Simulated assay, not measured.
Amino acid sequence: MLALLRTAAILAMAGGAIVLGLMFRPVGSPPAPIELTGDVNRGAYLARASGCIACHTDIAGGAAPLAGGAPLKTPFGAFYPPNLTTDPDLGIGDWTVEDFAKAVRQGISPTGEPYFPTFPYPFYANFSDQEIADLWAAFQTVPAVPEPSPEHEAPFPVNQRWALKLWRAMFLTRPETDPVDGRSAAWNRGRELVRGAAHCGACHTPRNLAGARSRGATFSGNEDLPGGDNAPSLRPADLRARSWTVENLAFALRTGLMPDGDSFGGSMGEVVQGGTAFLSDADLTAMATYVLDAE
């Protein structure tokens, strides 16, 4: 019995040491200098594909683009997408391109604090330096809006930023966007978009008790989205059972109209309105090709 108590005490002390170490250990890594010239049009396109406008603009409220989005009401509290305009005090106007790269690819603020995972930065981790430069060039064209984003409404201990270091250590993974040998160019492009920029798995995958995507359940659907919304399964057999084809899915991502004549509502309606409606026919077909024949 004494030996068991000693073992338990040692394990408790070890666990405490790990937690303390995570509390004070910096997260992320300094990005290398980015000296590439960005293309505004490519950046704007990638921003649409990545949902930046859809999330950081209160479309229903008629707010200015990227001035801050409607709250995401989750079981962990309400989180407000921040102001991403060029305002130097309330937006990102005083950032550097390296600050931007670290935020987008690593989920770390210029002051070194981790962002809450309502920001889908894990899906952007594989963005190239050129893609970051393109995005940055596009964001530099956004007019400054001197409006603050409301503070997050999260209870203790969720509101403790240091706890996010533990969350990251347990659940953070890189997206699987690399091309797969033997697959078509369209399929691989769809994979890159669906698993990367478009971050479809952020909504269409269930979450565990810690709010992380459930491993092994990718694209199986989620009935507990912010605001009480739900996202159906995107697995090929389930899509085909609901009469989806490559053609009508690509059309739906362009227009919001489903095969039965109904239209997307809720968050998916905003995804189309602020994002996929602006993508090329080739990219929409690629996304549909991938999800209807995913691994």
Rank of each mutant, 00 (worst) to 15 (best):
A138R: 01
F171D: 06
A250P: 07
A282Q: 14
I53N: 10
D99T: 02
P146Q: 02
R161E: 10
W187R: 00
R42T: 14
T205K: 08
I18E: 06
V291D: 07
D89T: 14
G69W: 08
T111N: 12
F278C: 00
A237V: 13
Q160W: 03
L84M: 15
L5R: 12
R6Y: 11
A250E: 08
A169S: 13
A64H: 09
A47E: 01
F278G: 00
D178C: 00
F119S: 09
H199A: 15
A237D: 15
A14Y: 00
E35A: 14
G69Y: 08
E113G: 05
T173N: 06
V272E: 06
A60I: 08
S128A: 04
Q106L: 08
A163N: 05
A210S: 11
P122R: 05
G274A: 09
R242L: 13
S109K: 12
A49P: 02
F278I: 02
D224M: 09
L284E: 12
T85P: 08
D39P: 11
C52L: 09
D58I: 01
A210Q: 09
D58H: 09
Y121H: 13
D94E: 11
F251T: 13
D293R: 02
R189A: 12
G196M: 11
L225S: 08
A49T: 06
W187Q: 00
F76K: 07
D283G: 03
M23A: 15
V19S: 01
L135N: 04
Y290V: 06
P33I: 11
T86S: 14
A103L: 13
A125I: 00
N41T: 14
A32T: 11
A125K: 04
M268G: 01
I132Q: 04
S149Q: 10
M23F: 12
L5Q: 02
W187A: 00
T85R: 00
A197F: 02
L284R: 13
V194S: 11
L135G: 01
A101G: 04
A49I: 03
L249N: 02
L225G: 07
T57G: 06
G112T: 09
Q160S: 06
R6W: 13
P143Q: 05
A231D: 10
E223T: 15
V142W: 00
S233V: 07
Q140H: 03
P88R: 03
S267L: 11
F119K: 08
W244F: 15
A212W: 03
E113D: 14
C55R: 03
W136K: 08
Y121M: 06
A144Q: 05
A144G: 13
E270D: 14
Y115D: 03
G112A: 05
T289C: 05
L5V: 08
F24A: 09
A3I: 09
G28P: 05
V104I: 15
P150V: 07
G196F: 12
D224N: 14
L11V: 15
Y80M: 10
R183V: 04
G182E: 02
G266D: 07
Y124Q: 12
L11H: 01
M13W: 04
